[in-house]
Design a protein around this nucleic acid. Structure first.
Lengths: 108, 108
DNA sequence: TAAATCGATAACCAAGGAGTTATGAATGTG
DNA sequence: CACATTCATAACTCCTTGGTTATCGATTTA
């Protein structure tokens, strides 16, 4: 029961505001905090806090440039999410296959 | 800004206990509430509540049989999640392609 | 240098939600 | 019929967390 990699991703992306910020970084690339705040619908400290959480989850990186900080998405951080989904689908599929086999054997 | 389909999925799957229940249903197929409670680490009412939330999100279906309820995973409900991830990756990729194009043109 | 801008942090508040126990309705079993 | 089992709901508590305002250090700019 150690910390699985998808755990933090689900938790981090669950909040709409935070996910919105991440989506914008994916769509439009690198942005400063002011730029993000302008369209986040919440205060600048709130945005900063969200960026901190996103960074903690490895979903964004930041680059300092003078007095402003540029944030950008780290798209490969999403991998554990797609892995998890594939795994779930895989489980389901294999049980389905087992059932198919069983039915096939019963048919003979 | 209407309710996007992935919204409820992220919110629902964010909780570890709830996700654990869903995972078990994916792995092992249909289960009763008692069976799920046995290994969920929380009380039966808690499990029932989680199942209600999962059902609301379309992630599980239930089948009544006498006095017990059998729950099972609805695997295709995960589609909006994979769609979202693909979309994010897509945005990132296209910006990357644009950059590549730009560099290529500058090179000529 | 004085004023303005950027962004992080602290301190606080309110709401949401995950957990609990208690209970009851419905079904099965002796 | 009496008892046990299953599971959903209600009522409650408590902690987490997303939001706010206030502030401050670090930069630019006038």
């Amino acid at each position: 029961m150690t910390q699985q990699p998808h755990e933090i991703l689900f938790r981090t992306l669950a909040d709409p505001t935070r996910r919105g910020i991440f989506e914008r970084l994916c769509r439009e690339g690198e942005q400063t905090v002011v730029a993000l705040t302008a369209r986040a619908g919440v205060s600048q400290p709130a945005v900063s806090k969200h960026l901190g959480v996103l960074k903690q989850a490895g979903l964004v990186r930041d680059r300092q440039e003078g007095r402003r900080t540029h944030y950008s998405a780290r798209i490969d951080a999403l991998a554990p999410l797609t892995d998890w989904t594939k795994r779930m689908t895989g489980f389901w599929q294999s049980r389905f296959d087992d059932l198919e086999d069983l039915l096939k054997r019963m048919d003979q």
